[in-house]
Amino acid sequence: PEAADLRALARHLYEAYLKYFPLTKAKARAILSGKTGDNVPFVIHDMKSLMEGEQFINCKQIPVPEHHQQQHIKLLYAVELRFFQSCQSRSAEAVREVTEFAKSIPGFVDLDLNDQVTLLKYGVIEVLIIMMSPLMNKDGTLISYGQIFMTREFLKSLRKPFCQMMEPKFEFSVKFNTLELDDSDMALFLAVIILSGDRPGLLNVKPIEQLQETVLHSLELQLKLNHPDSLQLFAKLLQKMTDLRQIVTDHVHLIQLLKKTEIDMCLHPLLQEIMKDLY
């Protein structure tokens, strides 16, 4: 394709990205570096601040089962589960945003509908993990649309297996952030992830690979223009896709473990659909 077409594609995907994703990397980095004036995030660093911060997270109160009615047990028991439930609601909303973004990729909606479902099923958690990276630094992560900063130490202090959920994402994100992609690079990278022709069960791989190839060309050109001094950035970025698959596999296994061990946990129906028979 002509360079002008590839630039037009990059612009189109960047516009869709800005339209569907409310918290961009530019905004997140401004919040994290304290450049938003008085608008500083509420910091959650222990159980007390978590409970104070719940009003920001807009937690739905989940009923505590009979066998946990004793007051202090109830409090300790419910807090992690309640936080997990609010994470699920946000994740479901994020899946909707990613779906709208996917539909804006030229040619995506013309693919076989079953294949659109497969691409989203396998791609959406990878996309969400990439989108989480700009919200993170080595000390913690923004949540709740940037209204809250939750410390990494606090997440590590939660009871098992909740404490194991975020640490691999921090490790990935800290490394990923050193690539210094901006929002316009991210938009193309997300489209490349969605258009992976090797997802299990795809019916018609060829048109998906053709679409991905065009977006890959556009991404390669974008990185050359936007990061002229960053050698091998395109290759480094493509390597991240392998790491991502392992993180998603581990994440799904952890959720499956949670489902077995947390008798009162209910998985959001949309996330259940995505994770069922995934890996």
């Binding site: 609601s89 479901a92 909303e93 899946v95 909707r96 779906t99 709208e100 539909k103 909606v109 509908l113 079953n114 659109q116 479902v117 497969t118 989203l120 099923k121 069960g201 959001h268 129906p269 949309l270 659909e273 995505i274 069922k276």
Partner: peptide, 21 residues
């Protein structure tokens, strides 16, 4: 596949109007 993924299918088929999640 569509049957097993009703919500995803619905999100794909609907326009940008938010689905009740």
């Amino acid at each position: 596949l569509k049957e097993k993924h009703k919500i995803l299918h619905q999100l794909l088929q609907n326009s940008t109007s938010p689905v009740d999640l």
